[in-house]
Design a protein around this nucleic acid. Structure first.
Lengths: 355, 355
DNA sequence: TACCATTATGGGATCGATCCCATACGCAAA
DNA sequence: TTTGCGTATGGGATCGATCCCATAATGGTA
């Protein structure tokens, strides 16, 4: 049978879904199934001669073991589910996926990616798919930092780690950006550059539909205040504004903020898009960046920051690192019976030319 | 492959609490395994009474069938591999993933996502992982439109469809953006608005490392010329410029192009980033958009286009649709013994306020 | 009532690997 | 030579589902 297949070329081979089995290899090499299995799994008690013979046959026949058969017996799926909602506000949030994927492949495991969609029924269905496949756990990632609701039923059945989001009562391990550190780092960079009047155009709570607290907004403000306090610079409420996501909003706010008495010499923007509107407004006022007014953004959307002139100093969200952390925790500590950690990752400053 | 196998340790035993089996369900419901299997697979010849009884037990015990066991017998993995290189120039290219994923879930299948990395050895290894898992096929997606090289050895063993890229001799089915249509649509929009002097700041061939032909650049130029020809507007080589990806490059080129005799009244930019530099240059010349000079971009990077003022009219790359097409073709036509199609998808205009 | 077609159900064989017990072999010590 | 022990190998049992044949139950018709 083996000879037949070899002679007829790959056209036929491709039609045969299962190709060769361990038995084909065993027969061809003149050994038993058990021996081939031992070679495959690097078991010590196989003679070098036999091992070489088997490996040679494996290579020659392009044999690759059937994963389903193996995992049926060993109950090791070597798969992790990666679920996301579909809401993409920051396209760079996909770095979470990359971080998770790279870490998984270090462990020789793979990721099954699914979208949960919006309604919890579709989510339930997606999760069933993952359970059926006996994934070792699930990483649930949100596309922006927020609170989410995972069905309790699911959590009882399989380890779940949250990335860029957290659950209501902090019952699940989660990793999120340390927004406070981000706000602090941005503000401190401006303080260090000698600024003491620092405007802050923060993100609005009204981000599309109403979401209870917006951790990004609250955290960054906290960091802003903390940096000011440390530098003994008084907090001035007049310097704080909120924008919604309409394009002209931050433009208008910047004009407003600059036309007051004692205008700021620096502006910290809640995200890079906001900073872009800010740039336009400053330009229309014939103010130079950073000579007249320094600007710092948030998000580090590289397609935007680097395209601006001068390029935008901003704060980086640790998307890649969140993906890494979530997988590491899932694989190594999912069974720990401790309070689920709520891990926060620093948001470092990315220095460019706007400060 | 052999290296890969050797690396998998022997003691990969992980005790996963293997919930219930089909036999548990059968016993609890007082029926046989076969009957439970029939219920699970919606087989008609099961009495309503029995079916209800079994379903009730399944629900009560939170039973979910073991996928490995099923696919061992049926040889249907219901999985498709999705491989990408890591080079992300346009973050929105992830829409390819979404398109593929959504289509797969319509078929009740899932995606295994992997990064191939840069070197072909790492790629080979990734592919082995997919083969071992008996995926039905592989979608290989590039993050920008280009030619790629898939190992012949792989292609012989499993169906492969390319998205946003193509193979040297067009031996593999592929789906790519119709760059010509994009260039045409952009230029035509400007012609329709009454412009006859249309500058074109095209993408440079020198995109980081040297890549043979840059389909985006060549195609868009072709579309530009085609639209001009159709409108009987002579092609003027003075209006064509190339930028590299340095931030200030398109700024400088715009100044250069506008300071010539008989400057253009409209500029078509090779991508949205280029358009952004163009905006800045026009603003510094005190020219209003679109009143003095109209601008069209390319890519439709929404975080950028909508943040610009006025918002940028641009051309959309059909990322989502490429993902859809690739999966559809893979599932329905992979075995067709015809010349592998090289499918091109239209790049539609997205109208905003800059024309 | 006898007969046949259809529906409903049970259970053995099977998929391709691993696990593990039994056994053959080689070699050193008694 | 015999005994003993570790190494190398073979092959039956097993994982959890599906497939399929055999058989029981049901219902309609002659």
């Amino acid at each position: 049978m083996i000879e037949l297949i070899l002679e007829t070329g790959y056209e036929l081979l491709r039609d045969m879904p299962q190709k060769y089995t361990i038995l084909d290899i065993a027969k061809t090499a003149g050994v038993s199934r058990g021996t081939v299995s031992r070679v495959l799994n690097n078991h010590p008690s196989v003679s070098d001669q036999t091992r070489q013979k088997v490996l040679e046959v494996i290579k020659r026949l392009d044999y690759s073991p059937n994963f389903s058969a193996r995992s049926l017996r060993t109950a090791a799926s070597n798969m992790v589910g990666f679920a996301t909602d579909e809401v993409i506000t920051t396209p760079f949030a996909v770095d979470i996926i990359r971080g998770a994927q790279d870490t998984l492949s270090q462990y020789g495991k793979v990721m099954i990616a699914i979208n949960t969609g919006y309604d919890s029924q579709a989510m339930q269905k997606s999760m069933e798919v993952l359970l059926e496949r006996r994934v070792e756990g699930i990483v649930y990632a949100a596309m922006f930092h927020r609170e989410i609701d995972i069905p309790a039923q699911l959590v009882e059945r399989i380890p779940v780690v949250l990335a860029n989001c957290f659950s209501k009562d902090q019952l699940l391990p989660s990793v999120v950006p340390d927004e406070v550190s981000g706000g602090y780092n941005a503000t401190k960079a401006l303080l260090d550059a000698g600024h003491t009047r620092i405007g802050f155009i923060n993100l609005s709570r009204a981000w599309g539909e109403p979401i209870a607290p917006l951790p990004a907004s609250d955290g960054r403000l906290k960091g802003y205040k903390k940096a000011l306090a440390e530098a003994d610079v008084p907090y001035d409420e007049d310097l704080l504004h909120y924008t919604d996501q309409r394009p002209t909003s931050s433009y208008d706010k910047t004009l407003e903020i600059m036309q007051k008495d004692d205008p700021p010499t620096a502006i910290f923007c809640g995200n890079d898009r906001t900073a872009m509107g800010c740039y336009n407004a400053l330009m229309s006022l014939s103010l130079r960046i950073p000579d007249d007014v320094a600007v710092v953004g948030f998000d580090n959307q590289s397609n935007l920051c680097e395209a601006l002139y001068p390029s935008l100093t901003t704060v980086q969200l640790p998307h890649y690192e969140m993906g890494q952390w979530a997988v590491e925790y899932l694989l190594n500590h999912a069974d720990d019976s401790v309070d689920p950690p709520q891990h926060k990752l620093n948001c470092p400053l990315v220095t460019r030319d706007s400060v």
